[in-house]
Design a protein around this nucleic acid. Structure first.
Lengths: 253, 253
DNA sequence: CCCTTCTGCGTATGACGTACGCTGTTATGC
DNA sequence: GCATAACAGCGTACGTCATACGCAGAAGGG
């Protein structure tokens, strides 16, 4: 009926469409003085410097020497800006896996790449995610993850589930460590003293008769040793990959 | 030096202390007309009805027939109120594991209990978590989880890591499904049509040459079948528990 | 009976996202 | 060359929010 080739469902916000290279500049009117990427870069600079809470429309505009409302000619809302910030905040995907790596080595590299990004830009964890990824680089990450599982016996649906499992784990682990870091800064404590202080607090609060298992953990000094946070990350990742490996071998055998 | 028996580090907010039953009512002054639990219950009612975004201090006060600023006699800040909301939102822990259950059955029940809570109160996922749990019921959940691992060969530190792994997974899975639900409501689409619509959108955006693996997943119709979301939950949980099982058997053997 | 200590809360402040509409700029159709 | 439509920049205004501050009245202790 309509002559438009685009007939399908959900409407993509204009700024996201331009991130995909669709959408040409309208022929009339004054030339734009800014650009969506410049705005997003400015917002990312603010988040890198002062955290996500410092990213307000007026602050980003100030960063660009423009007025607040000028930004709305480029992005439809702050939420749209946040979506674009996530895209450039993650940056380009780590690339396809090394051909001589097996799936496990590939996914390990993939997980570490996200881990690295989230360590450097912990504000990414505070962006409320409002849906599945639709920006170019985000889908690039997904593509690279899927390729790691290319030679395996897993079904396509299972590959997707495995990626979701891993990326969820990486985000979660990064959340916890960044909370410790932010909490120690807020309380004015050394980061290494944070978990021991928490352990002492809980030990003071709980009744050992009501919380025997918890009391045993605290008595074992689990929170006192400040081991390499990377060890914790590796532990969980290895558990998950062990679980995936068990499935792959079951499918194969 | 000080005669106080309490000398250790981080100061607990007053409202949290009263949640632990410490802190008696001051002898002087007018009798309080409200109570912390009443305020928290009102806030939880608002969140249950209209989501976390509807929880403002003025809205909660209106729920109680009080003025906004009256609440600040009971809670120190909105963040404190949120912390208490999480505590009562989760509710009492599911209880210690059935004695005849092994660790795997116990943790499965434990994970399903949290899953159930988060399905009923998805606003819990939107509360920005600002630190490790310090409220009574939260620590109760942790206690019950630890007890599931009581008979195993795992070290205390490993037990803690396993719980973190599982609770992180449950939260993550609940986040994804609740995003789909909220997204479909916002877009006015049937929930069952959400993922297929997403699949069509991505298929339209990507170049199959640049995203071959992703294209293959979409062509397989992974997003078109609307399978039971519980199946997805079980899949990931089983992977993780398989991984934990592998570790336990390695420790034992 | 006064004084201390508390409760309830009205007022005010500053920050935020963004709807609306005006002004000036640009390229096209005549 | 000129009118006109489409667009860029942005000043103003509005509604919402958390919360600092201070005052009035209540309740118990000396």
């Amino acid at each position: 009926m309509a002559a438009k080739t685009d007939d399908s469902g959900p409407v993509l916000p204009p700024a996201i469409e331009s991130a995909w290279g669709l959408r040409e500049r309208p022929p009339k009117g004054p030339r734009p003085g800014m650009s969506v990427p410049a705005i997003v870069d400015a917002a990312v600079r603010v988040a890198d410097a002062d955290g996500l809470a410092a990213v307000s429309m007026s602050r980003v505009a100030k960063e660009l020497g423009a007025a607040t409302m000028a930004l709305y000619r480029y992005v439809g809302s702050k939420d749209e800006l946040l979506m674009l910030m996530v895209d450039t905040g993650y940056g380009p995907s780590p690339g396809p896996p090394d051909p001589q790596d097996d799936w496990r080595a590939g996914l390990t590299r993939w997980a570490w790449a996200e881990h690295e990004v989230l360590r450097r830009r912990s504000w990414l964890l505070h962006v409320p995610i409002s849906g599945p990824p639709i920006t170019p680089q985000q889908l690039g990450w997904m593509e690279d993850g899927l390729r790691c599982l290319d030679g395996t016996t897993l079904g396509e649906s299972e590959k997707m589930s495995v990626l979701l499992l891993i990326t969820g784990y990486v985000r979660n682990e990064a959340s916890l460590t960044s909370q410790v870091a932010e909490g120690s800064r807020a309380a004015g404590i050394e980061p290494a003293e944070m978990m021991p202080a928490y352990g002492r607090l809980v030990a003071r609060l709980i009744d050992p008769a009501r919380f025997p298992a918890l009391h045993r953990v605290l008595s074992a000094g689990v929170l006192n040793q400040d081991d390499d946070p990377d060890d914790e990350f590796v532990f969980g990742l290895d558990r998950i990959l062990d679980g995936v490996e068990a499935l792959i071998q079951r499918r194969a055998g």
